[in-house]
């Protein structure tokens, strides 16, 4: 390669770049297509199966006997909430993984999801709050936990290993708060209780999806706007500073947005296990090396929640909340990641 003249090299790089961006478009289209399939499945399969044409007619306001209600009132909110929550988890997760340069540093492992979840449980069960107040409490608690972990992990500088371990410790404490609050809740709320242990989109309503949509628009837009800066932060703090990224301000903004995404989605659906953790690595695997795959990770997250929910509802002998399914997928992947990191001799 080094023997070729500079001009052909530049041309080759340019053509490689073009090929890669073409490939990326193709992959995005593929994932988008899968997402459409997932949404269609959620909309058309339920207690009874509605053909796609009837689904379209029901959605456009047509009168479809026997299916109009379930498509519009039951399945549509579910599909919307699953998609939005999945995108929030995927995007928030990949931002954390990129920022901390470690696939294991996803918000559901280092305790940020547990913080949001604990605040939501306390607000709902003990204080009797509903709606936006719960979301605000979850966001504030998520931020507080993120700050706490960061400060506790600080010794000269923040190391990934210490941050993850401290996150595991904090999250064990928060999980026990959740368990305690749930044990004080009335016994008939078991279904509700399990949502806070595993996460689920059961009983979704349009009202619930609204705060998730708002946070996705606000924080997600902010993150996509800052994608260049996030890419630079991935290299290292020094490199990012050298590339002219105003580090502290942008980092604070990015963390705020990612925590906001995770916390609002958690306040509505509960901590859907491992979606935030899985989306980033899967997205990186399908898009290949290069930029941080923010958009792809969001799509993968949505796909995971939709598929997981479909599997949990229809393909297993009993009906399970989506978190049980994603937990069953995610845990082996986490173990695989640990084993692979070990084999490479790198730091897990």
């Amino acid at each position: 390669m080094s023997l070729t003249a500079p001009a052909p090299l530049a041309a080759r790089v340019a053509s490689l770049r073009r090929a890669r961006s073409r490939g990326r478009c193709r992959i995005a289209a593929l994932i988008g297509g899968l997402l459409a399939v997932g949404i269609t499945l959620t909309l058309s399969v339920g207690h009874s199966v509605t053909p796609p044409l009837d689904v379209v007619r029901a959605l456009t306001g047509g009168d479809v006997p026997g299916a109009g209600f379930s498509v519009r009132e039951l399945r549509l909110p579910r599909a919307v909430l699953a998609t939005l929550a999945g995108m929030s988890f995927g995007l928030g997760g990949v931002v954390f993984q990129t920022l901390l340069r470690n696939p294991l540093a996803s918000p559901d492992i280092i305790g940020i999801s547990s913080g949001a979840s604990a605040a939501a449980v306390v607000a709902i069960v003990l204080l009797g709050w509903t709606g936006a107040a719960v979301s605000v409490a979850a966001v504030l608690a998520g931020l507080a936990v993120a700050l706490l972990i960061y400060l506790l992990a600080w010794r000269d500088r923040v190391s990934g290993a210490r941050l993850i371990l401290i996150g595991i410790g904090i999250s064990a404490m928060l999980e026990s708060i959740i368990a305690w609050v749930l044990s004080r809740a009335p016994a008939w709320t078991l279904q509700e209780a399990l949502r806070w242990l595993t996460g689920s989109v059961n009983g979704a309503t349009v009202d619930q999806a609204l705060p998730v949509l708002l946070s996705l628009g606000l924080f997600g837009g902010l993150l996509l706007g800052l994608r260049r800066e996030i890419g630079a932060m991935r290299l290292s703090d020094d490199t990012a500073a050298a590339l002219g990224v105003p580090l502290l301000r942008d980092k604070a903004l990015v963390i705020l947005a990612a925590v906001g995404l995770i916390a609002v989605a958690t306040a509505v659906t509960g901590p859907i296990a491992f979606v935030a953790f899985l989306s980033g690595p899967v997205a990186a695997r399908v898009t290949g090396p290069g930029r941080a795959p923010l958009g792809t990770a969001a799509l993968i997250g949505a796909l995971l929640v939709l598929i997981g929910d479909f599997v949990g509802q229809h393909l297993l002998p009993a009906r399970y909340p989506v978190g049980v399914v994603t937990g069953a997928i995610g845990a082996p992947y986490l173990l695989y990641l640990i084993v692979r990191a070990n084999r490479q001799g790198g730091h897990a």
């Binding site: 595991i168 069953a328 995610g330 845990a331 070990n342």
Partner: peptide
Amino acid sequence: LGRGGATPLKLALAGAATSIAASSL
């Protein structure tokens, strides 16, 4: 598994993953 043996981080992560999988099941 692998080089470095059972470091605290690897053991804690493996334990956390196993706990999550077990409670999910």
